[in-house]
Design a protein around this nucleic acid. Structure first.
Length: 412
RNA sequence: GGGGAGAUACCAAAGUGGCCAACUGGGGCAGACUGUAAAUCUGUUGUCUGAAGACUUCGUAGGUUCGAAUCCUGCUCUCCCCA
């Protein structure tokens, strides 16, 4: 309703955005309406379910599909922000609630004015809720209805994460997109466990949304909250969970609990099931995915946002993703290859250093090797999704995807 | 010149009669990694073979023994101390 009034008085999208900052939080109805306006779809692909859109945040526009580099501890390991902006050109990065809460703690980040000024990053930040740590630190936590009791992996101290607490921490961090607190169920996991886990996640979601609505942003700009669909590899649960996520009417939705070991085909199938239910006019974020091929296949199934440690972590470990396939730069065959890491890259760093040099650095354990490999991989990922966006806009995404997936998946 | 110690696989280094094709570390080669407890972890590293197995190895030449990297003798070389 409010949106209609604005459009009749001729406000453009960007003016609307500016308006929002001044008066955000005054009226809950208003916030709900603005959330709807945060995502704009420019083009839907005809042969697949792919979409090209733009997600508006307080820290800039995010053209989608997008890949978000993972910067768990408020740093994309080994990469200067300058290179994130130029070489990689990432409009948004991830940070992690659990990790930042433990160290350096929310006090200092609040005093800095949130995670953006704290880390000197003026583009968007999405914070994961710690739900993944419920999964990855399973040996160090205990789940209850109330929340998750963690033992810190740093000093062993005990901490209780509840949905309310996780929202509060993310308010302190000031991320543009906050994630609901969930349990990421392991794989394999039986239907009974998956059901109970999903129901717990849903109850936690209600508490997250409730607390989200009851609290205000601390730094004068709007923060979104994305619910997370769970349900393991069971279609009935996935459907129920997607319906639950859609019902809370947040600005975007996430699909969690995939790429935890199940076959890629199962992941695609679950993504399709979920996306057939999640609202079309909001961004869909497939958490933790994945390989370049996973990403293109999921874009084809209607996913808009991705994150994964693969380009960064695997890069540090010598795996390079290129338009001609995947290479292990440590392998002997690159020892005398003086050609650039990627001659056709958008990134100057990928065009500059040779494979032989990068191999030498990585094998020698030189930190510059990890840096170059990470920057190269992230530049490749970002350039891949930018190209996907372009193909969607041009209407040639389907065939391009088929051909590209084959090429980039190959082991060279 | 005198005295002493030593020589083991690519490097370093353990092993001092059979459980040794030889511990361990490094290096080499390969693999893993999907909302980061990861600049981490795993495998492999004499030759042939898919494997079972076979063959050749512990400075070198002999010897003792059913059996030697391990014991004995000669030789070659290296290091340390004293003059």
């Amino acid at each position: 309703m409010v949106a209609r009034i604005f459009s009749t008085i001729g406000l453009s999208f960007s003016q609307f955005d500016n308006c929002m900052f001044k008066i955000s939080g005054i009226n809950l109805t208003f916030v709900t309406v603005t959330q709807r306006m945060m995502f704009r779809i420019d083009q839907k692909d005809s042969s697949t379910s792919a979409r090209a859109g733009v997600l508006h945040t307080a820290h800039g526009e995010i053209p989608t599909p997008v890949f978000m580099p993972v910067g768990t501890a408020a740093t994309v390991k080994g990469v200067l922000h300058r290179d994130l902006r130029t070489e990689i050109n990432a409009p948004v990065i991830l940070a992690n609630t659990y990790h930042l809460y433990l160290r350096p703690g929310t006090d200092i980040i609040s005093r800095a004015g949130g995670v953006h000024p704290f880390m000197s990053w003026d583009r968007a930040v999405l914070t994961d809720s710690g739900g993944y740590q419920v999964f990855s630190l399973a040996a160090n936590r205990k789940l209850t209805e109330e929340g998750a009791i963690f033992r810190s992996h740093i000093d062993g101290s005990k901490h209780l994460f509840t949905p309310e607490r996780v929202i509060e921490i993310q308010r302190s961090l000031g991320s543009d997109i906050m994630m609901a607190f969930d349990e990421c169920a392991p794989w394999p996991c039986d239907h009974g466990y998956a059901l109970r886990s999903m129901e717990l996640t849903h109850r936690w979601l209600d508490r997250c949304v409730d607390h989200y609505r009851k609290t205000e942003p601390l730094y004068g700009y709007e923060q979104m909250l994305f619910p997370i669909v769970q349900g393991a590899v069971y279609s009935d649960l996935r459907r129920a969970s997607a319906e639950k996520a859609a019902s809370v009417e947040m600005a975007g939705n996430a699909i969690g609990g995939l790429s935890v070991g199940e076959p890629a085909e199962v992941m695609y199938e679950m993504t399709e099931v979920v996306n057939s239910i999640l609202p079309e006019d909001k961004p869909r974020y497939l958490m933790g995915v994945g390989t370049p091929a996973n990403i293109l296949e999921s874009i084809a199934r209607g996913v808009d946002m991705f994150d994964c440690v693969m380009p960064s972590r695997n890069g540090r470990n010598g795996m390079l993703f290129t338009r001609d396939g995947i290479i292990n730069i440590r392998n002997r065959r690159w020892a005398e290859d003086l050609s650039p890491v990627d001659a056709g890259s958008d990134s100057e760093i990928s065009r500059t250093y040779s494979k032989a040099y990068l191999r030498h650095l990585v094998i020698s354990g030189e930190m510059l090797g990890a840096q170059i490999a990470t920057i190269h991989n992230l530049a490749f990922y970002l350039s891949l999704v930018r190209e996907a966006r372009k193909k969607i806009l041009e209407g040639t995404f389907g065939p391009w995807k088929e051909e590209t997936v084959k090429r980039i998946s190959e082991r060279v």
